[in-house]
Design a protein around this nucleic acid. Structure first.
Length: 802
RNA sequence: GCGGGUAUGGUGGAAUUGGCAGACACGUUGGAUUUAGGAUCCAAUGGCCGUGAGGCUAUGCAGGUUCAAGUCCUGUUACCCGCACCA
């Protein structure tokens, strides 16, 4: 037998699959369906690195197995192609981003196809294609129509290098998530999406979903729900200060108030505040700090007392001072707090510094030394009608009291902010809105979609914060769709996250020009049964797309309230040195070279075999050889293949056990141990000295999802009939997975002293008798008193002696 | 600071959830084959002691529960990730 010519075989089968459309999802909606999805890549200039194929392979294995199990599988692929890196590359090299995108996609596609993924290429989507982004714009207009898209002037995160605003989700540790540059505050008029309107549902509905826990947790934390109360504090000026607190029980301990420097009352009180100079200086200093500086946790608390005004604590009518301080954020709650220094660390620190009274209202701590914060076990004191209650009851009673008195009410708050949706860059979807002096913001009529991105030769970002599109006066100046008068187009574009927020819907019906997808296709295919993607998208793409999907559900476009039934996440493939793979570290492994040297199947096997799917794993160019050997050994089984229509007795259990293991492991994303089991079975064939046709056939079937080219090629060479892709997944029988005789360990005082081969169904009593009769066991029990003896079925006997 | 996670041979990693730790691989060593290299095949391979049979020891560290602990409990260390003055 000639050795396996993987290059020839892989090319051959890839061509067949492409010509036949072997893996295209079927239009027959009566079949059981399985929608299997991986995040579509951003087609960067560097091409794929060996990290990309990890999740593609894992879900390709799932998709291929599901097909063999009779499901109509949708496993699509596409391109998330708008975005800054492409635009920056285009600017640097003076090539239009449209061409850069086209070239990058061509390269990515070729690389993906060389790995033999079973994607349905007939459904390929591209977010930069006008026939695609027509529907991205359409969804935006629906959001606008329902009041969920609005434009407002606000302080935003501005990346100095990208010359573009960023969403909160795109700012990581005060720097730009993408380029690592400084992020400063800038007041700008921005399009916003009201994701906050969906905060409660995005949070609640997580519980019903089959998402891995760390994803749920991260989304819960990001949404940041808290329950408490809003309370009104009267002031000496007749104004109200509304505060949000999670601890209404501690209201009797509120000895001062703090409002943020940006709070409206500061300006309103300009004439009343006696030390306005000092206050102005503080406000000014705060405004010049970056968010990052302001958020620095361990810095000293600063602030200024507002002279000439005071507030009144609504529960005891005591007059309390009002401060401004930048530790109170204007963007959360009401931008004002009641300070309870006895039971809040920040307030305690502030009170110590400004020598303000600290009152204990929950007993149990030592408020002289530190704030008593985690006081669930304490009882209320110095708190009038709350005295003697525990914290939980006190919160309830105080909230009731506030509501009765009309001084406050229960309130749920979220950390989640609305989504800053406009970008001052060229390579994105134009926002289909015109601004008319008479009519305000007017949406383009649906018939004018898509509003295409004008093809221009100059699209550099500007320093003044305007979109490059603003310079195209011919394009900008238009007429109002409503009144026909002169109007101007919106010149900002959508963020990269727009196109990816709904792409999984388009796959269901990608060529539809009447709707983003037909009702029937959506009814059949959604929700996505299994979605895998990176943890870095948890609070970005994953949250955004859940939001859009819920909105589309509310307006009757999609049939399910959630887009994804199941979400898993892969660990990163690291460089050989254990560090993150990157060009600057020089540890990038190019999959093309691996495919060239070892073949796609070896590459696929190694990607799965490398380790626990959820954990990061370092690439190792030696280890991959083990997978290559495995491929060659499977090929060479042809030399020792005997006739035989049934499993041979000495291999029957091995066959059933392996099929079972592979079947279950694939669904549990434990392909690494599935491959180990198949390696063991191969070793077993060689140990026996032969395989027979029945065994070889079924072995090839379970190996097929991992090594599709090899298995098809062997199948054909062996003339097993048809193709592997047309077969059924082999069955295993539970009862045939059990050995008739088993080896059990015999322990004395928990240490293994001997082994016995016994019938699998041996009675406990018999096993113990046999164990005690064992010579070696006797040496350890002789002359000692047996205190206890037990048999753990199928495992061991333990004899405890003294 | 808060929340979550991880820690097992020289390496990647297994361990049916409390039941023989180290499956499966990589690497290494020895052997076979080969003109040679490569490839392939066979054997050994956690550590310590022992010629040997075998014994002891071992899952970051320290305790505990149990006939039995990588797995459960208490404490502790290191690293990774997320959030970060969110009232």
């Amino acid at each position: 037998m000639a050795s396996y010519d993987f290059k020839k075989a892989e090319k051959k089968w890839q061509t067949i699959w492409e010509e036949e459309g072997t893996f295209n999802a079927k239009q027959d909606f009566s079949l059981p369906k399985f929608y299997c999805l991986v995040e579509f890549p951003y087609p960067s200039g560097q091409g794929l690195h060996v990290g990309h194929p990890r999740s593609y392979t894992a879900l390709d294995v799932v998709a291929r197995k599901k097909r063999l199990q009779g499901y109509n599988v949708l496993y699509p692929m596409g391109w998330d192609a708008f975005g800054l890196p492409t635009e920056n590359f285009a600017i640097q090299n003076k090539i239009h981003p449209e061409k850069v995108t086209r070239d990058n996609i061509a390269r990515f596609k070729e690389q993906l196809q060389s790995l033999g993924f079973s994607f349905d290429w007939s459904r390929e989507v591209n977010t930069t294609d006008p026939s695609y982004y027509k529907w991205t714009q359409w969804i935006f207009l629906k959001l606008f129509e329902k009041g969920l898209a609005y434009k407002t002037e606000m302080a935003v995160n501005w990346c100095v290098s990208c010359k573009c605003v960023l969403a909160n989700e795109e700012v990581v540790n005060g720097v730009c998530e993408r380029c690592g540059s400084e992020v400063v505050r800038k007041v700008k008029s921005q399009w916003m999406l009201k994701i906050t309107e969906y905060a409660q549902r995005l949070d609640d509905d997580l519980d019903e979903l089959d998402f891995i826990e760390r994803v749920k947790l991260q989304q819960h934390n990001w949404i940041g729900r808290s329950t408490g109360a809003e309370v009104d504090f009267a002031t000496s000026t007749g104004d109200n200060i509304k505060v949000y607190t999670t601890r209404p029980d501690t209201l009797f301990g509120a000895t001062y108030m703090v409002i943020s420097p940006e709070h409206d009352l500061v300006k309103k009180w300009a004439d009343i505040i006696e030390n306005m100079d000092e206050v102005d200086a503080y406000v000014d200093a705060a405004s010049r700090k970056s968010d990052f500086e302001r958020a620095e946790v361990n810095k000293d608390k600063t602030g200024v007392k507002l002279q000439g005004v005071f507030a009144v604590n609504p529960v005891n009518n005591e007059e309390i001072p009002i401060f401004i301080a930048d530790y109170v954020l204007v963007s959360y709650g009401t931008g004002a707090i009641m300070a309870v220094p006895g039971h809040d660390e920040r307030d305690w620190e502030f009170a110590k510094k400004f020598e303000l009274p600290i009152v204990e209202v929950v007993k149990g701590g030592d408020i002289e030394k530190e704030a008593y914060v985690d006081c669930d076990s304490g009882l209320m004191v110095n708190s009038g009608f709350l005295d003697g209650l525990n914290v939980e009851d006190a919160i309830k009673k105080m909230t009731e009291w506030l509501e009765e008195q009309g001084k406050g009410y229960a309130k749920v708050n979220f950390k989640l902010r609305d989504w800053v949706f406009s970008r001052q860059r060229y390579w994105g979807e134009p926002i289909p809105i015109v601004c008319c002096d008479k009519c305000g913001f007017v949406p383009l009529p649906e018939s004018e979609l898509p509003l295409t991105l004008p093809m221009v030769s100059s699209y550099e970002p500007t320093d003044d914060g305007e979109s490059p599109l603003a310079k195209l006066t011919d394009w900008v100046n238009t007429s109002c769709p409503k009144c026909g008068g002169p109007a101007m187009r919106e010149t900002d574009t959508m963020p990269q996250w727009a196109g990816s927020s709904w792409y999984f819907l388009r796959y269901c019906d990608p060529h539809n020009d009447e709707a983003l997808a037909s009702k029937e296709a959506l009814e059949y295919w959604t929700p996505v049964d299994w979605y895998n993607g990176g943890m870095e998208h948890t609070t970005l793409h994953l949250l955004y797309s859940r939001f859009w999907h819920k909105f589309l559900y509310d307006i009757g476009v999609v049939p399910t309230p959630e887009p994804y039934a199941k979400r898993t996440s892969h660990g990163m493939i690291l460089g050989e040195n254990g560090e993150k793979m990157s060009k600057s570290r020089g540890n990038v492994v190019n999959p093309d070279e691996i495919v060239d040297e070892y073949g796609a199947d070896t590459m696929r096997l190694y990607e799965v075999f490398i380790g626990d799917f959820e954990k990061a794993a370092p690439w190792n160019s030696s280890s991959i050889r083990g997978c290559k050997r495995f491929v060659d050994r499977v090929w060479a089984l042809q030399d020792i293949c005997l006739d035989g229509e049934n499993y041979r007795p000495q291999l029957e259990t091995d066959m059933h056990k392996t099929i079972k293991k592979v079947t279950l492991d694939i669904d549990a994303l434990k392909g690494n141990t599935a491959i180990a089991a198949m390696m063991s079975l191969t070793n077993r064939f060689y140990e026996v000295g032969s395989v027979n046709k029945a065994e070889y056939r079924d072995f090839l079937l379970v190996l097929n999802p991992f090594a599709p080219h090899l298995t098809e090629e062997v199948w054909e060479k062996m003339a097993f009939g048809g193709k592997v892709s047309q077969q059924n997944w082999p069955q295993y029988y539970e009862e045939k997975c059990l050995e008739e005789t088993i080896e059990i360990a015999v322990q004395v005082n928990g240490r293994v002293r001997s082994k016995l081969t016994v019938a699998a169904d041996i009675e406990s009593r018999d096993a113990i008798e046999l164990a005690k009769a064992d010579e070696r066991v006797g040496q350890f029990t002789a002359g000692k008193e047996i205190i206890k003896e037990l048999y753990i079925k199928g495992k061991l006997v333990n004899i405890v002696v003294k």
